[in-house]
Design a protein around this nucleic acid. Structure first.
Lengths: 115, 115
DNA sequence: TTTCATGTACGACGAACATCGAACACTGCT
DNA sequence: AGCAGTGTTCGATGTTCGTCGTACATGAAA
């Protein structure tokens, strides 16, 4: 459970970012994270196997879309909104609005925060 | 040389659009078309084989990014800016700005318009 | 230390993709 | 009719992707 590295702010590449966001499940994850709050990812609910979710999270992280923090045995994920906004102004907002308009990623939800 | 159909305005799907734009060559084509003017595609210069360019243009068209018009033996391509802006406000502009900022698609150029 | 929970790595599979060259089809000109 | 220009389609090939199940590693709790 290591190597939770993300690209440096300046190294987020556009094609990779768009590729990461071209999957409905990943777009759904981003929508859940859109409010800026961090989520533990047992909290994320998507209709895919655990290993598949792990893969999606890794893809998002490596594309620079999210950041992952480890605490004990669990991991928390959040959007890298500042970095994204700094590098590609307005893009994230437009993307999120588009996802909502297009109803993409509706199948991804979240459980209530851990008690 | 037929079947130059594009999806209806309302049917442009976000994941597909992003997938189409996750390739540097296609992003480069979009950058060339960004001024809204139509281009004959003998005019487009990309370091790929003719059939590959045809494939990319088809991908863009089927994702709803561009429109293709045939006139005699040649085809002309242009951005569907209105439809895109209507469906996903601000997205295209942010994407184009991002592509410029990230210097993506610089390898795609154009010849001067036919005399 | 044993056990449980959580996430990762690995191997596999089919599907989709980028790319090429070659063959085909259509249009227009001679 | 024949030819040249232009774009599409067709394999072929190698890569990447989404998905799964299983096995492994790590940290916490009993």
């Amino acid at each position: 459970m290591q190597d939770h590295s993300s690209p440096a702010d300046a190294e987020i590449a556009l094609p990779r970012l768009l590729g990461a966001l071209s999957d409905p499940t990943r777009l759904g994850i981003v929508r859940v994270l859109a409010d800026g709050a961090e989520r533990g990812w047992g909290q994320l609910r998507a209709p895919v196997a655990k290993s598949t979710l792990s893969h999606h999270l890794k893809t998002l992280r490596e594309a620079g879309v999210t950041r992952t923090r480890q605490e004990g045995t669990r991991c928390y994920v959040s959007l890298r909104r500042e970095a994204l906004d700094a590098r590609f102004p307005g893009l994230l907002a437009a993307l999120l609005a588009a996802a909502v308009a297009d109803n993409v990623g509706e199948h991804v939800g979240e459980d209530p925060p851990a008690l």
